[in-house]
């Protein structure tokens, strides 16, 4: 019996894992890499994509599959920017803070968004509508300042244009919101191929 099973807090929900198709995606990546411990980051990538964030159960599940200590998995997951341990908002707004964007005053965009929605970068509004994040450089410096709203890259923004776009997105009914699953990727990456 593994350690995780004896955990005082509820263990990885085995039942759930059997029925939740998202775990199947994780399993597929695990299998593709032959359950090698070295594949931890690849597995975490898949998990983050499938679930939108990494919760404790998910990390325990991965730790068990790869036969790694829990603290190891947690240490790796928190080392990298990409992995989020908390659920993200319905919409995400990523403002690029690369040098070119900074020189072209991206900080003002962030300040404006922060004032309007009351969230700092890395936070989500209380109603779960919007997550604000910054990126290190999206590599679209020709279009600086750049922001990404729900995976759509927008260039040459000003605080005003940024705000009006954001208000539009947040006000839109949830049904039309697409691809707001997670993360700061420009577009959703392809799922793992078997």
């Amino acid at each position: 019996m593994s350690i995780a099973n004896k955990q005082k807090n509820p263990p990885a929900k085995v039942e759930e894992a059997r029925t939740d198709t998202r775990y199947k995606l994780v399993d597929r990546t695990l299998k593709r890499f032959h359950y090698q411990q070295d594949a931890l980051i690849e597995v975490l990538h898949t998990a983050q994509e499938a679930f939108g964030f990494l919760d404790d159960d998910l990390m325990i599940y991965i730790a068990r599959a790869l036969k790694l200590p829990q603290s190891w998995v947690y240490g790796v997951a928190t080392f990298y920017h990409f992995f989020s341990l908390e659920p993200q908002g319905e919409h995400t707004c990523v403002v690029c803070m690369g040098t070119a964007c900074y020189v072209k005053r991206a900080a003002e965009i962030i300040a404006t968004v922060q004032d309007e929605f009351g969230i700092a970068p890395g936070q989500t509004t209380a109603d779960g509508k919007l997550s604000l994040a910054t990126a290190r450089c999206l590599g679209s410096c020709g279009l600086a300042p750049v922001m990404v709203i729900d995976n759509q890259v927008l260039g040459k923004e000003t605080p005003d244009t940024a705000m009006s776009r954001l208000r539009e997105v947040v006000a839109a009914p949830a049904a039309t919101a697409t691809a707001s699953v997670s993360s700061a990727t420009i577009e959703p990456q392809e799922g793992p191929t078997p």
């Binding site: 411990q37 070295d38 594949a39 931890l40 980051i41 690849e42 975490l44 990538h45 790796v76 080392f79 990298y80 920017h81 990409f82 992995f83 290190r136 700061a184 990456q189």
Partner: peptide, 21 residues
């Protein structure tokens, strides 16, 4: 191998650690 967002991984020894998960 897809990076996961860490500037320091541009350093070669850090990059290798990251390739090894």
């Amino acid at each position: 191998r897809i990076g996961a967002g860490a500037f320091v991984c541009g350093e070669e020894t850090a990059l290798m650690a990251s390739v090894m998960g």
